[in-house]
Write a protein that binds this DNA or RNA. Sequence first.
DNA 1: CGTCTGACGCACG
DNA 2: GCGTGCGCCAGAC
Length: 131
Amino acid sequence: MKKSSKKSPASDPADFFNRVYAVTNRIPFGRVTTYGAIAAFLGSPQAARTVGWAMNASHLQPGFVPAHRVVNRQGLLTGKHHFRYPSLMQELLESEGISVINDQIRDFKKIFWDPCKELRGIKRRSIAGES
DNA sequence: CGTCTGACGCACG
DNA sequence: GCGTGCGCCAGAC
C-alpha cells in the first residue's frame, strides 16, 4: 500500500529544506546559530551551503522564518543582502538585543545557539511536522 | 542530461 | 593570516 519503494520517508531529500525551517523556527529569541550547525544537526555538516539555499527560499514558506538568526561560522551577516533591504537583518538582530558591529555579531560565541546541543533529543519527532 | 551557481565550511599551501 | 580548491544539496539553464 505504500512504502514499497526503496526510499525511506525520513530520507526524503526535499525534506531537507523543511528540516532547516523547523530548526530555524526553534531558534530562541535573542539567540543565533550558524548554517553549519544546522547542517550538522541534520546529519550533513558539509551541507552548510544547502542550508543557506534553504534560507533563500525561506520567504516562500508560510509564516515567518527567523533567517536573520542564522549567520555564518564567523558570526557575520553574510546573507543580509537577501532580505528586503540589506540593513533589515541587522535591525532585526538588534531589536532582539544582539549587538552587530560592521556586519559582525558581538559576543557571537556567547549568544550562539547550537541545535545539536539544545535539540539533541529531537530529530525524530517534531521535525517540521510538529509533535 | 550536463554544467554552473549559491546566504558555507574545511583542508591545503 | 590569507587565497584557493573541493564537497555538500538543490535549483536554473
